[in-house]
Amino acid sequence: MSIPVADKERREDGAPVGSLVTLVGNPRAGSRTRAAAEAAAEAIGRRIGHHGPGEVVDLAALGPHLLAPGPSAGVEVALELVAGAEVLVVASPTYKASYTGLLKAFLDRLPGGALAGTTALPLLVMGDPRHALAVELHLRPVLVELGAHVPTPGLALLEAETPDPGEVLARWADRVAPQVTAVLREGAGA
């Protein structure tokens, strides 16, 4: 599902523009987490020269199929889309000071190394600033374990910031976009 370098859209500086996918681990459809994740993906996308909305995998629709005993075409497509992403925004609300079990169930379906060649950007939406380290202590390690490059810092977004996250997202995107661009350039040169 990866796009060959020669076929990739290029930015003005010659760096490739990779596929951008947003993975939302909130069990509730239409959540603040999804809105925040899409806004974060858009902020990063603008800074790395990605045009268009990118793809969204919203696990709320796939939840019942993740633990089903048989295969699910929707889950398989979602796994391929996530594994094929060059830039992956992974978002979850904070439950019990960590990410959701729904997101964990999905990530557990990916084989080891499935995110090699992917730059993953973790994002947790939380009610209390005391949970801000959860993005680094819980979500980052699972993404690294799956082989992803994970720039610093992940995004800890307070629920109170979700109605108007522009300034918080801009500061975060300004900080991590150069790291994402460097990884995309490095991958293009490989």
Rank of each mutant, 00 (worst) to 15 (best):
S19A: 14
A15N: 06
S92Q: 05
Q179N: 04
S19K: 04
G112N: 04
G25L: 12
R175C: 11
L115G: 13
L157R: 02
T162R: 13
A39S: 13
A40Q: 06
G25F: 13
D128P: 07
A78G: 02
E167V: 03
L115C: 04
V24L: 12
N26R: 14
P151E: 05
E9W: 05
G101R: 01
V17A: 15
A43N: 07
S2N: 12
H51N: 14
P69F: 09
A97F: 06
A36G: 04
L137G: 09
V180S: 02
N26A: 15
R32A: 14
L157D: 06
A78D: 12
L143Y: 04
L115Y: 02
A177C: 14
G74C: 00
D58G: 09
V180N: 01
S98T: 01
I3Q: 06
K96I: 00
K8V: 14
T162V: 15
A78H: 08
R130V: 05
E38F: 00
R47F: 12
P64E: 07
E55I: 00
H51C: 12
T118N: 01
A43M: 13
L158R: 13
E76A: 11
K96G: 02
A73Q: 15
L103Q: 03
R11W: 01
L121F: 02
V180M: 05
L107T: 13
E186T: 12
R28Q: 15
R46T: 14
A116P: 00
G74L: 07
P16D: 13
A73D: 15
A73S: 14
D13H: 08
G112F: 05
Y99R: 08
T100I: 07
A37M: 11
E86T: 05
L184H: 08
I48W: 04
L88Y: 09
A182Y: 14
P16K: 05
V87T: 01
L103R: 03
E161I: 13
L110G: 04
F106D: 09
K104W: 04
P178T: 04
D128A: 06
S31W: 11
L157I: 03
G52R: 09
A15F: 06
P4D: 14
P4S: 14
K96R: 10
R109M: 08
L103Y: 04
A37R: 12
R34M: 15
A170W: 01
A61I: 01
V183Y: 03
T33I: 02
G52C: 07
A132I: 11
P163L: 14
V82W: 02
